[in-house]
């Protein structure tokens, strides 16, 4: 089976073109990673399609409160009579977009800051940077972000600011370790001899060598962040009702848990399926990276 797949992959790659390369890439992936990509594609498609096609209003209530799942309401209705199916998938869109935003900014900031700390020759700057990274990382994400929400106020803006301020330190740690390794490489020495400015060496030679690593880390960090966004909203610090968000929906629904189980079950399960999808992709990337290191 595998041998056949590889032959197919090679011939497809030989056929050339973007499509050929995509097909070859897909075939060389481990099963788990394909599974993860499948989950994410499905989730993203549904998160756009379901709210657009649903006849129900996702924010305003209706008299049909606490109805069990039926042909009319696939996931039932919540305590205000809103369709859980439409809300669950609108929440998917909100959670995925929020998590993507909360990952991308710290990824860039952390890569640059970590690279600087890694290549600097100043002991003081290095120690100070290391200490800042270690202090921020010594708090669990959820706890430090919720404490920052006390300062910035609850809501989407508050949790995004909280995540921006703290998450860069995780990327900086990865970037620093990598930059420390490439600091003494010959091509950096060559750049210095040619009299390139520090900014140019950092931007053109160090950052491009650090970025693939932090990017791969970002995929696994996405899982942490999406769970943090949902967790913060569950605690009432993040996305505020009536906006549909998995954590906030779960928090709403748990107060009516004796009457209806469906508004509790579906958002929770969708959240873990999404997180599972992303972590399967991250595992695939990680395995490939370690194979490349060996090879």
């Amino acid at each position: 089976m595998t041998a056949l797949g590889e032959v197919g992959a090679r011939s497809a790659a030989a056929a050339g073109g973007l499509r050929g390369r995509l097909v070859a890439g897909w075939r060389s992936m481990p099963t788990g990673m394909r599974f993860g990509i499948g989950i994410m594609v499905l989730m993203i498609v549904l998160s756009v399609a379901v709210p657009a096609l649903s006849p129900y209003d996702t924010r305003r209530g209706s008299p049909d409160a606490n109805l069990p799942p039926s042909a009319e309401y696939w996931f039932g209705t919540d305590h205000l009579g809103r369709d859980v199916f439409a809300r669950t998938f609108e929440a998917a869109r909100i959670d995925i977009v929020l998590a993507a935003a909360a990952v991308s900014v710290p990824l860039l900031v952390g890569t640059i800051v970590g690279s600087i700390i890694g290549i600097t020759r100043s002991r003081l700057a290095q120690s100070a940077g290391d200490l800042a990274i270690e202090v921020i990382n010594s708090f669990p994400t959820l706890i430090i972000v919720i404490a920052l929400v006390a300062a910035f106020g609850r809501g989407t803006r508050g949790i995004l600011l909280g995540l921006f301020i703290t998450a860069w330190a995780r990327y900086a740690k990865v970037a620093r370790a990598r930059a420390l390794v490439i600091r003494d490489m010959d091509y950096l020495e060559a750049g210095r001899c040619l009299g390139y400015s520090r900014a140019r060496i950092l931007g053109r030679h160090v950052a491009p060598n650090v970025f693939p690593l932090t990017l791969a880390y970002a995929v696994s960090d996405f899982v942490v962040v999406i769970l943090a966004v949902a967790g913060l909203s569950f605690l009432g610090a993040g996305v505020q009702p009536p906006t549909p968000e998995w954590g906030a929906m779960l928090n709403d629904a748990r107060l009516h848990i004796f009457r209806a189980w469906w508004p509790v079950l579906f958002p929770g399960v969708m959240l873990s399926i999404t997180a599972l999808g992303v972590s399967l992709i991250a595992q695939g990337i990680g395995r490939r990276a370690s194979e490349n290191l060996v090879g």
Binding site: G32, V223, L227, A230, G231, F234, G247, L250, R254, I257, F258, W261, V264, L265, G268, V269, L271, S272, I273, A275, L276, V278, S279, L280, Q283
Partner: peptide, 27 residues
């Protein structure tokens, strides 16, 4: 084990908690 552990790590404690509450406390 790889798939099962990934799924359980991907389920945050508040989801596990509410689902356990639903099954063992309410049902």
């Amino acid at each position: 084990f790889g798939l099962g552990s990934a799924a359980l790590i991907a389920t945050p404690p508040f989801v596990t908690g509410v689902l356990l509450l639903l099954v063992f406390g309410v049902r």
